[in-house]
Computed example of a mutant assay.
Amino acid sequence: MLQSKIGFVLNVLFIVYFTSKSANGQTGPTVTLTCRSCNRASSLDQCSGSITCGVNEICYLDELITDQKTVVYNAGCRAKDVCNAGTSKPSIVGKRELQKRGDLVACSACCNRPRYSGEPECNTRLCGIKYANTNTSTCYSCDSSSSGQGDVHEPQDCISQSVCQSNEACGVQRYDYLGSDSHRYVCLPKLICTLLTKEALKRMEECRQSHDSNICGNVGKRSLVNVCTACCGDGLCNTGTCEQLLDRIYNLWKGGALDLHTLQLKQTTTRL
Rank of each mutant, 00 (worst) to 15 (best):
Q3W: 12
K5Y: 02
G7N: 08
V9R: 03
V9P: 00
L13T: 10
V16K: 13
V16D: 10
Y17D: 15
F18W: 04
F18H: 09
T19E: 15
S20P: 10
K21I: 14
P29K: 14
T30E: 12
T32M: 03
L33I: 09
T34G: 01
T34A: 03
S37T: 04
S37Y: 00
R40V: 01
R40F: 00
L44A: 01
G49N: 10
S50H: 04
T52M: 08
V55P: 08
V55K: 11
E57Y: 08
E57T: 03
I58H: 06
L61C: 04
L61P: 02
I65K: 00
T66S: 07
T66M: 09
T66P: 02
Y73E: 05
R78V: 14
V82L: 12
N84Q: 14
N84F: 04
G86K: 01
S88Y: 11
S91I: 13
V93E: 13
L98D: 11
Q99I: 11
K100T: 09
R101N: 13
R101K: 07
D103R: 09
L104A: 00
S108W: 00
A109W: 06
A109C: 11
A109R: 09
R113N: 07
P114I: 08
R115A: 13
S117N: 14
E119W: 09
P120W: 02
C122D: 05
N123I: 07
R125F: 10
R125E: 13
L126T: 03
C127D: 08
G128L: 02
A132Q: 07
N133H: 05
N135G: 10
S137Y: 10
C139H: 08
Y140S: 00
S141L: 07
S141M: 11
S144F: 02
S147Y: 06
Q149R: 01
Q149W: 06
D151N: 15
D151V: 10
D157Q: 15
Q161P: 05
S162W: 03
S162I: 03
C164Q: 13
G171M: 15
Y177D: 10
L178Y: 02
R184A: 02
R184E: 08
Y185A: 04
P189L: 01
T194Q: 07
L196D: 11
L201Q: 09
K202Y: 04
R203T: 11
E205D: 13
E206W: 11
R208V: 04
S210E: 09
S210L: 06
S210T: 13
S210Q: 14
H211D: 05
N214V: 06
G217L: 01
V219W: 05
K221M: 12
R222F: 07
N226L: 12
C228V: 01
C232W: 08
G233S: 01
G233R: 07
G235E: 04
L236S: 12
L236P: 07
N238C: 00
T239C: 07
E243H: 03
E243L: 02
Q244L: 04
Q244M: 11
L245N: 11
D247R: 08
R248K: 15
N251G: 07
G255L: 08
G256T: 12
G256K: 10
A257G: 10
D259N: 11
L260G: 06
Q267L: 00
T268D: 14
T268A: 04
T269R: 10
T269K: 15
T270K: 15
T270H: 15
T270V: 15
R271E: 12
